[in-house]
């Protein structure tokens, strides 16, 4: 499974989301590769991804995709990330 975390600049917030998504997947016992990128590159980076993780503010910038878009409000809340990923990958 491939998961992409995106942010506006491709550094900082997407890297935090990537790290905490990896922790959440570990909790769920799900094998997945998580990458971080910026919203401008999401078309290429997420072309074969199953899940895109992002902020509610960035959803409108993502464009057409076959991946499930999972919106995370609090990037530091592992319970929120775990619960939302469980639905997306389940």
């Amino acid at each position: 499974m491939k998961i992409v975390a995106i942010c506006g600049a491709g550094i900082g917030t997407s890297a935090i989301l990537k790290l905490n998504a990896e922790r959440a997947l570990e909790r769920l016992g799900v094998e997945a590769r998580v990458s971080a990128t910026d919203v401008a590159s999401v078309g290429a980076a997420a072309s074969d991804a199953q899940v895109i993780l992002t902020s509610p503010e960035l959803v409108k910038h993502i464009g057409a995709t076959n991946a499930d878009i999972v919106v995370i409000d609090n990037y530091f809340d592992l319970d929120e990330i775990t619960a939302k990923l469980e639905i997306a990958v389940g």
Binding site: G8, A9, I11, G12, T13, I16, T54, E57, L58
Partner: peptide, 23 residues
Amino acid sequence: SVIEEFGAYVVIAPGFALAHARP
């Protein structure tokens, strides 16, 4: 500019913003 372009996504937790730009 990053926030003007992409919105308030830098507000990644309640009450908290991580302001940044590319290198």
